[in-house]
Write a protein that binds this DNA or RNA. Structure first.
Length: 463
RNA sequence: GUCCCCAUCGUCUAGCUCGGUUAGGACACAGGGUUUUCAACCCUGCAACAGGGGUUCAAAUCCCCUUGGGGACGCCA
């Protein structure tokens, strides 16, 4: 399958963060390499003096490794290879294919490749035959007057010297390719196979950018999206394994990925479907993995001291697993565990829809009486006790469960109640029920939580 | 403006290579089921081949044009 061994590279410039579109390019290259048993190389394109930045390089390397896209060779730095570029450029000058030119301000000499006389064309592995006419191609600066190579020159020299077989990159490079082909031609080198992946756009059809929501990979991760979801979802933006398959592990993607199934069409990033997919991947994950991510977010929010044990958190995750879209939202949803009993506030709709009902005080009182005597405060006896209260009062379970839920969580919607009470513990549960009973005695005394200031959520589409 | 690319439900897409399908799936949306709430889950519904010309017995599939969209036009990468 791979007589000349497949060698691909991911060649980002160090911008300080990994953009979602950039990651998709890395992913496709990595998948292609792994699928074919080839080699995945990391090269840092740092030929722009202004942009050179050590931290930015760390971001790329860690980002790739954290997502499981390990590279086999590199990282190589173009800034380390300056003499190599110069040597090749001088050769072209010696052959009369390039010439030197003084910069405007007279500092330094640039090397410039003459304009081509023939057309430049290639068979793109995703788009098919693409041709540029010579009149549309100009002279090309090879070495800038500051001594650094230009992108199009360094890229060709490196791809050749690193024996890259497939140059697979974003669509925005299509117009660089004919220029690079000219360089290959001048140097007398055989160009590699080229392939250009379609762009990822926002839902408005414009190039994906900050105003569409999150675009940095770390933004998604910090919000509690799983690495596998990010990978799975962006893999599907421009590629599909065929048939109905959508949810995949990294391993499955490696097995199924082929370049010929990459579409030439730009795709829009649908944050809603992305969130849905994360929920699916969460449910398919090991709860301990979710636990680790949850703990990170809890720590970031300063609640770490309020988590009694790892096991306790795992129990809550199991309780909420079907409700989780992002781990960040999950932590929001269980924040009632982290407030002091006396500080719990009620959502306005909790009052309107539940506590203001005529039967509410009666139901809550009955629940209190049924629960207070329990010594084994675990879900089964709690359920039995509350069902007993139903019989005693003649109320349906919903009529009793809802006021209890509101008393304990402040919310009209939460996970299964009996287990929730168990995890909150008897003392805290009873304290919350008692104080709610007290509020009934003074109309209008319920502490109401006003709508919070809008938190920027990555699931939201910018207007 | 010039050059390049693209075009199936609102969105991601299958189907296109090798013309013949009730054009399939998923998200979202709507309705129903289940249920202590909300989810999750199950069922049902809504919804597309951009337009026009060819070629052909037959076109989403092949060709051309139009329209629409995206990208590139740096001594940035």
């Amino acid at each position: 399958m791979d007589s000349p061994k497949i060698r691909v590279r991911f060649a980002p410039s160090p911008t300080g963060y990994m953009h979602i579109g950039n990651l998709r390019t890395a992913l496709y290259n990595w998948l292609f390499a792994r699928h074919c048993g080839g080699t995945f190389i990391l090269r840092i394109e740092d030929t722009d003096r202004q942009r050179h930045n050590e931290d930015a390089i760390r971001v790329i390397i860690d980002g790739l490794n954290n997502l499981g896209l390990h590279f086999d060779e590199g990282p190589f730095f173009q800034s380390d290879r300056l003499p190599i570029y110069r040597r090749h450029a001088e050769e072209l000058v010696a052959q009369g294919l390039a010439y030197k030119a003084e910069a405007q301000e007279g500092k330094g000499e640039a090397i410039i490749l003459g304009a081509p006389e023939e057309e430049a064309s290639w068979v793109d592995v995703v788009k098919g035959l693409i041709t540029f006419q010579p009149e549309d191609l100009q002279e090309l600066v090879l070495i800038k007057s500051d001594g650094f190579p230009t992108y199009n020159f360094a890229c060709v020299v490196d791809d050749h010297e690193m024996a890259i077989t497939h140059v697979l990159r974003g669509d925005d490079h299509v117009s660089n390719t004919p220029k690079q082909i000219c360089v290959y031609r001048a140097l007398g080198w055989e160009p590699p196979t080229f392939g250009h992946f379609p762009m990822i756009l926002g839902m408005d059809g414009q190039r994906l950018s900050k105003r569409h929501g999150a675009v940095k990979v770390t933004d998604f991760l910090d919000a509690g999206y799983l690495p596998i979801t990010v990978l799975n979802f962006i893999a599907l933006l421009g590629w599909s394994p065929g048939g109905d398959k959508e949810i995949m592990s990294l391993k499955e993607m490696v097995e199924l990925f082929t370049i010929d199934r990459v579409r030439p069409t730009a795709a829009k990033f649908d944050y809603e479907k992305f969130a849905w997919m994360n929920g699916v991947q969460v449910r398919a994950s090991d709860p301990r993995e979710i636990c680790a991510i949850a703990m990170k977010i809890i720590t970031a929010r300063g609640f770490a001291a309020l988590v009694p044990s790892q096991q306790w958190l795992e129990e809550i995750i199991k309780l909420y697993i079907e409700r989780i879209k992002t781990v960040g939202e999950f932590i929001d949803a269980i924040s009632y565990f982290f407030v002091a009993d006396a500080d719990l506030k009620f959502k306005r709709e909790s009052i309107d829809k539940v506590l203001s009902k005529e039967a509410a005080p009666v139901a809550l009182q009955a629940a209190y009486e049924a629960l207070n005597g329990l010594t084994d405060f675990t879900a089964p006896p709690i359920e039995a006790a509350l069902r007993g209260a139903c019989e005693k009062t003649g109320l349906g379970l919903g009529k009793i469960a809802q006021p209890v839920r509101v008393a304990v969580t402040g919310l009209t919607a939460s996970a299964e109640l009996f287990k929730t009470l168990e995890l909150l513990g008897k003392d805290r549960s009873m304290a919350r029920i008692v104080r709610t009973l007290e509020f009934f005695k003074t109309p209008g005394s319920f502490p109401i939580e006003e709508p919070p200031p809008v938190a920027p959520a990555v699931t939201e589409e910018a207007q």
